[in-house]
């Protein structure tokens, strides 16, 4: 009764083959990441030191540290977040909790998705036109961060909308049925159960913002500026631009230096991602339904 038939045999063979194939694809995917990380640690690791992290660049950027760029990236990311998170979350709340499902809402949703596909250099040009020139912020952290904010807004909106829509409709109806307004329902039921997901999206956005070069290049990031910024109206160095500069624009840079910059940037992004994964795990553990 449990004899293997020819069909069984073939199914088993196909199944093993498919599994092998998928496994190989996965390995292919992981390989470049491992190689990049390995190379960066191998070549850039020796560059890491207290001085590297806490000194200004010196000798025409061929020596010294990256402090102004590191601090500048933190500024850029922080201001971009302050601008994009409230707007993005509010827009997502409106689209998902208030707007009727009509052609206008669908058009806006489509626009949001398309905005995510616009190349970053186009955002850079928009940033120059809008923030640097029209609003007269000049090349400054403010202009650069707002450009980053516009660019990452779709990410925040989509991530937020998805976490909002993961909250079962039955919870909302139960709330509305007891006479709660939409806002009361959002505050008491929808937000408490989606906030962790929203924050996860925000952290992912942060890591993306940290690595961008084009949008800040013409709007606020400086080639070389060995001071720490004091307000959002200052220009600043940034890790991503600094990496571009020391790899392509400056002669006689010792080999370990650009690798060191890249390593710091990647470690920063990885750390943020780790936080976001930790957050998500915590959220799953706390899931209440």
């Amino acid at each position: 009764m449990f004899q293997r038939t020819a069909v069984n045999e073939r199914n088993t063979r196909v199944q093993m083959l498919v599994r092998l194939l998928f496994g190989m694809m996965t390995a292919l995917l992981v390989l470049p990441v491992l190689i990049i990380l390995g190379l960066l640690i191998h070549r850039g690791g020796p560059a890491l030191s207290m001085e590297f992290l806490f000194d200004e660049p010196s000798n025409g950027m061929t020596a010294g540290g990256i402090m102004p760029a590191l601090v500048g990236t933190v500024w850029l990311v922080a201001v971009a977040l302050i601008a994009s998170v409230p707007i993005g979350v509010a827009a997502a709340l409106y689209l998902s909790e208030y707007a009727k499902d009509n052609w206008l809402t669908r058009a806006i949703n489509l626009a949001v998705i398309n905005l995510a596909g616009v190349p970053s250099i186009v955002h850079a040009l928009f940033g120059v036109g809008a923030f640097v020139l029209f609003f007269k912020f000049g090349t400054s952290i403010l202009a650069a961060s707002l450009t980053l904010a516009v660019m990452t807004l779709p990410v925040v909106i989509v991530a937020t909308r998805e976490s909002l829509q993961a909250v079962p409709q039955a919870f909302r109806e139960a709330c509305w049925n007891m006479g709660a307004t939409r806002w009361q329902t959002i505050r008491k039921v929808v937000l408490p159960n989606s906030i962790s997901g929203i924050l996860t999206g925000v952290i992912l956005e942060v890591s993306r913002t940290a690595g961008e070069t084009a949008p800040i290049m013409f709007t606020g990031a400086a080639f070389f500026l060995p001071f720490l910024p004091e307000s959002v109206y200052d220009q600043t160095m940034a890790l991503s631009l600094h990496l571009y500069v020391v790899t392509t624009q400056v002669p006689n840079v010792p080999e370990h230096l650009p690798y060191g910059v890249a390593l710091v940037l990647i470690l920063m992004v990885l750390a943020l991602n780790a936080v976001s994964i930790g957050f998500r795990t915590w959220l799953r553990g706390r899931k209440k339904w």
Binding site: A170, E173, A174, C175, N177, M178, V189, P192, K288, W289
Partner: peptide
């Protein structure tokens, strides 16, 4: 003024 009970119980996540 109108209480509602659905077919499937909806325990709110609290």
């Amino acid at each position: 003024r109108i209480g509602v009970v659905f077919p499937l119980p909806v325990g709110l996540p609290m």
